[in-house]
Design a protein around this nucleic acid. Structure first.
Length: 837
RNA sequence: GCCGGCGUGGCGGAAUGGCAGACGCGGCGGACUCAAAAUCCGCUUCUCGCAAGGGAGUGGGGGUUCAAGUCCCUCCGCCGGCACCA
């Protein structure tokens, strides 16, 4: 590309307008006014050292187009950008090189800001936030204190995932199958550690329930539902034979209680020790030890074959007083329900597999519907062999047996969630310090608000102590403090917050980014919230969105925010793959760098291409040929508008060394653009284009909107080639339509059209529906559903008239000859279908 | 295994149950040019045919309908999520 001629001088146009927008603060949003508000948000990026990736601008371009469109439609638009800048890579880099993470972060942010600004996004840069800025994380800490004071933060000894590779504790969500999600390390082990945990489970029901308030894709809602994993059932107590203890199990199928033929405890279950008989002791301890080791390695590998050991003890089934054996098996997890189950092999796939392997009895207690085998049937049927519930369909049987248990104090209705409390502390340096101290006298004491922000101490050595203590433990001067309550000696908390913390509430700070009195002023919050549209990658479908909804609800309960949900509409952009159709990665060598693309084709082409590739939500491969195509389109637009002679002069001038700005100013409007009256044909095309682009934008159909504009340009080029003028009344609205997509070149064209102000707030063109009504239409004539001819007729012809025309048509006659007409279907202005046999 | 989503030309992708393949890429042909590039114009689902014209066609099979890429059933494949959740 470098050697070939540019389609148009984007290299001069684009920097000029970017500077103009920054200098004039064109996109500053005011916190109020008479216009309706529209808050359109991108998921802010982690500014990595690798710089911007072509995947980032996809969502950013989509939101930018909508932000610009909404401004033109008269909305007061809030469209901000910032940096989710705490995180491990900067800390790793610090460990390797001694560079302070803050310095690395500053540098990376500068790169990201430059690259994002290079694309001409209409962010209100006065609202930029950075999660590592003490003025920002002061409020992250403040919110933590509100959560703490509400009793939703607690300390707990938690067996955590410790990654030997990262030298760091990972959240459950960061480990999959014993492998570290961040870097792919495989040496991840469990160790118990004192941790801060947030009680997100207290909000499980509302997080689930309120999904119906938001306009998100069903797929994402479903993912959240699955993650929360609510299931209704009962807790049932089983007496242990010859012991005073009892085992409580959780089951979703209390109706199958009569079919329970054994019980299983998780290997970690505290009762295992107590119930194991002397004879079984050796076997049980060996099994438990093996299970722990396995769980340290790769749990998913266990999914193959069931294992377990009989522990010697028996339990009494409360419904029929049968003695059933108690086993220990690792297919029961300590972390879910009560860590113990009643096994009903006839109606649970896992129990059946286990029972078959160990020859345990299988008793049918649910009759499957006709034609289905009852053994292994896990759906709803009719209870059999089940005493008082025999003969009842499953839902009623559940209700009745639960009530029966409840009356006798043997059990109760219960609800369980897969969702666990949120492990909130990290043993890292580069995160928000948790603003509490540990006092020997007073215990855990929150810092007073006046002590915020609690900043990180300067350190030279960021390596964690081998003890798995956080690196902050090494900053002894910082750690030593006094208790805010009793004034006695105390130590600071050395854990820091996870990266999720800062991103849990950034959308609120954008509303009031510099407020020193509050995390957000009440009136501004009320004006801007909720976020009308939130766009980001699907990788945050569960965690980020769940955590931030949780914080938002806590703030809502405390009266700090006015809406129960933060994000009204959510859209996930798809991934951009490499030209080979594979995920972009350095190792594959298929990474496209936005800097190169912008240098070759300009930001407008880059934006336009990212939108033209396909639907926003789909994954699609990058194509260099494709971007050449849209670049060509913008070239056609340019040539449609500029005077050919002036363009040649411009090129000569630039070649001769005239400063670009001056040369550009000499480029004049094409003489074909005149104050002429548009022809009916031109008007029709213009209005059809306006309607299509408007409708497509409202539906976020960016790719099809661009197609429509291409069609307009193709047609308009033909007019001009044929010597027709391009009336201003058609040219100007077109520039406005294209402006949200390719703002730089459109601003330039707008200037050439004689305007002295930015087009950013020009009213969006309207269309006249009456102009779209065709006078003549093409009607398809079908015989037995096959197209045989097309005829042009006046629009609005009555059905009988159309039918008559069809019967008279030569081609139709050919295909109906010798047949009897059975039926005729007429769709006015569209088609006639003659059914004949 | 379970839950989502998706299968349309050589490629990216369009199509409120009513003309499948808009738009772009690529390809072919033409104009301009000494020539090339750039640009402009035309053609381009496959197949039979010199043509006129015919036939087939939206992952496979079945169904509903005058009419199905679109709705229903079933199977296959790909992508994403969860994964012994009791």
């Amino acid at each position: 590309m470098a050697a070939t001629r540019k389609q148009y001088p984007f290299d001069l146009i684009e920097p000029k307008w970017r500077q103009f927008w920054l200098d004039n603060k064109t996109f500053r949003a005011s916190d109020g006014g008479s216009k309706p508000k529209f808050y359109i948000l991108d998921m802010f990026p982690y500014p990595s050292g690798a710089g911007l990736h072509v995947g980032h601008p996809e969502g950013y371009t989509a939101t930018d187009i909508l932000a610009r469109y909404k401004r033109m439609r008269g909305f007061n638009v809030l469209h901000p950008m910032g940096w989710d800048a705490f995180g491990l890579p900067a800390e790793q880099y610090a460990i390797e090189t001694g560079t302070h993470p803050a310095a690395t972060t500053r540098k990376n942010i500068a790169t990201f800001r430059r690259q994002i600004q290079m694309l001409g996004f209409s962010y209100d840069w006065n609202r930029e936030v950075d999660t590592t800025d003490p003025d920002y994380f002061k409020w992250t800490q403040w919110i933590f204190l509100q959560i703490f004071k509400k009793g939703l933060a607690y300390e707990s000894e938690v067996p955590v995932w410790w990654c030997e590779g990262c030298k760091a504790v990972l959240a459950n969500e960061e480990v999959s199958g014993g492998v570290c999600d961040r870097k792919g390390h495989t040496n991840v082990v469990r160790r118990p550690l004192r941790q801060w945990v947030l009680k997100i489970t207290a909000y499980a029901d509302r997080l689930l329930e309120d999904l119906k308030l938001v306009d998100w894709s069903e797929a994402i809602k479903e993912m959240q539902r699955n993650w929360i994993g609510r299931s209704e059932g009962a807790e049932v107590k089983f007496q242990i034979a010859d012991l005073k203890s009892e085992i409580t199990v959780f089951t979703t199928r209390p109706d199958t209680l009569f079919g329970a033929t054994y019980m299983v405890l998780a290997p970690e279950h505290p009762l295992v020790e107590k119930v194991t008989t002397v004879a079984q002791r050796a076997a049980v301890s060996a099994y438990r030890e093996a299970a722990t080791k396995k769980s340290e390695l790769d749990r998913t590998d266990l999914a193959k074959e069931k294992t377990g050991v009989f522990i010697g003890g028996y339990a009494i089934n409360p419904v029929n007083n049968e003695k059933i054996p108690i086993w220990v098996a690792d297919y029961v997890m300590m972390g879910y329900g009560t860590g113990a189950i009643m096994a009903v092999p006839a109606h649970d796939t896992r129990d059946l597999e286990f029972a078959q392997k160990f020859n345990l009895p299988v008793i049918i207690v649910v009759q499957a519907p006709a034609g289905q085998e009852s053994i292994g049937f896990v759906g709803d049927g009719v209870s059999v062999n089940s005493g008082l519930i025999t003969g009842l369909p499953t839902p009623e049987a559940k209700k009745k047996i639960t009530a029966w248990l409840e009356e006798r104090g043997l059990g109760k209705k219960a609800i369980n969630y897969k969702l666990r409390d949120w492990l909130f502390s990290r043993q890292r340096y580069w995160g928000e310090p948790i603003p509490v101290v540990h006092c020997n006298k007073c215990g855990v004491v929150p810092l007073p608000e006046s002590a915020l922000p609690l900043t990180l101490p300067e350190m030279h050595d960021y390596t964690p102590p081998a003890s798995a203590e956080p690196p902050l433990a090494k900053a002894t001067d910082w750690v030593k403090t006094t208790c805010p309550k009793c004034g006695g000696p105390a130590t600071r908390e050395t854990n820091t917050m996870p990266q999720w913390a800062g991103s849990c509430w950034y959308y609120l700070r954008f509303i009031d980014p510099k407020n020193p009195q509050a995390f957000v002023a009440k009136d501004k919050e009320k004006y801007w919230m909720p976020v009308d549209l939130y766009v980001g990658g699907a990788e945050h479908a569960v965690l980020h969105l769940l955590y931030s909804r949780f914080w938002h609800k806590v703030l809502y309960d405390l009266g700090h925010v006015s809406t129960p949900e933060p994000f009204m509409k959510l859209v996930n952009q798809g991934m951009i793959l490499g030209e080979d159709g594979q995920k972009m990665s350095k190792s594959r060598g298929n990474v496209i760098n936005p800097d190169d693309v912008v240098a070759d084709f300009g930001a407008d082409s880059f934006r336009l291409y990212e939108m033209f590739m396909g639907p926003l939500e789909a994954s699609k491969p990058w194509s260099t040929k494709g971007i050449e195509g849209v670049n060509r389109f913008l070239g056609r637009v340019w040539r449609l508008f500029v005077d050919e002679k002036a363009q040649q002069d411009f090129e000569l001038a630039v070649a001769a060394g005239t400063p670009g700005e001056q040369a550009l100013a000499g480029v004049k409007l094409s003489p074909a653009i005149k104050d002429a009256v548009p022809t009916p044909e031109q008007l029709k095309l213009l209005h059809a284009t306006i309607k299509a682009v408007t409708d497509d934008l409202d539906a976020m159909g960016f790719n099809t909107a661009i197609s429509r504009m291409m069609e307009f340009v193709n047609e308009a080029t033909r007019w001009v080639a044929a010597g027709q003028p391009l009336p201003r009344k058609a040219a100007e609205p077109f520039v406005l339509l294209l402006a949200p997509f390719a703002p730089h070149v459109c601003e330039q064209l707008w200037t050439m059209l004689g305007y002295t102000q930015s087009l950013a707030y020009e009213p969006w063109p309207g269309y006249d529906a009456a102009l779209l009504v065709a006078k003549e239409v093409e009607v398809v004539l079908q015989v037995n559903g096959k197209v045989r001819d097309r005829i042009r007729v006046a629009a609005g012809l009555p059905q009988a008239e159309l039918e008559k025309l069809a019967h008279a048509n030569e081609k139709v006659v050919q295909h109906t000859a010798g047949k009897t007409v059975r039926k005729v279907v007429v769709v006015p202005d569209k088609l006639v279908n003659i059914v004949a046999a």
